[in-house]
Amino acid sequence: MSISEPTPSIGLTTISRTVASLAVGVVHTLERAVVGEGRMRTARGNAWEAVCADRARADQRAELDRLVAELTAARAAARRQQRERQPVA
């Protein structure tokens, strides 16, 4: 009696993982070659960029809030002046 072992087959998933793994390796190597070792993106660098972007958005929101408050105050002052100029009926 001969027991035949099942032949390992390569599935679509295995090929996809292999291709993805090779692609990541190529991109990583290419980034090192083009950008340079010292300027490669890292998790720490990405986190710092995110913090800076959040701060910039917060500054922009604060500036917009300040402008809206300024416009609201100017509009209210203009309405008060308009009411003071109108004769009382």
Rank of each mutant, 00 (worst) to 15 (best):
Q86G: 03
E37G: 13
N46G: 06
G38N: 14
G45S: 06
G25E: 09
A77E: 06
L64M: 08
P8C: 05
W48A: 15
E84Q: 15
S9V: 03
L67Q: 09
V88R: 04
I10M: 05
E63R: 06
L12P: 15
A23P: 02
M1Q: 11
R66C: 08
Q82H: 14
Q81I: 02
R79V: 06
V27A: 15
E49H: 08
M1Y: 04
S9K: 05
V26R: 13
A23K: 15
G11T: 14
V51G: 01
A73F: 10
R55M: 08
A76N: 09
R17S: 15
R57M: 08
R17G: 13
V51F: 05
I15G: 04
R17T: 10
A62C: 01
D59Q: 09
L22G: 10
T29G: 14
T29K: 13
E31Q: 12
A73K: 12
G38M: 09
E70P: 03
A50C: 01
T14P: 06
P6G: 04
C52L: 10
A20C: 02
A23L: 12
R17I: 08
E70I: 03
G45P: 00
A20Y: 12
I3V: 14
V35Y: 09
V27D: 14
A69K: 04
L67C: 13
T29F: 14
G45T: 02
E70N: 05
Q86R: 13
L64Q: 04
W48G: 12
M1P: 10
V19P: 00
L71M: 11
R85I: 02
A89S: 04
T18K: 08
R61A: 14
V19D: 01
Q86A: 10
M1R: 09
V88L: 07
T14V: 11
C52R: 03
R83K: 12
R75N: 07
R41K: 10
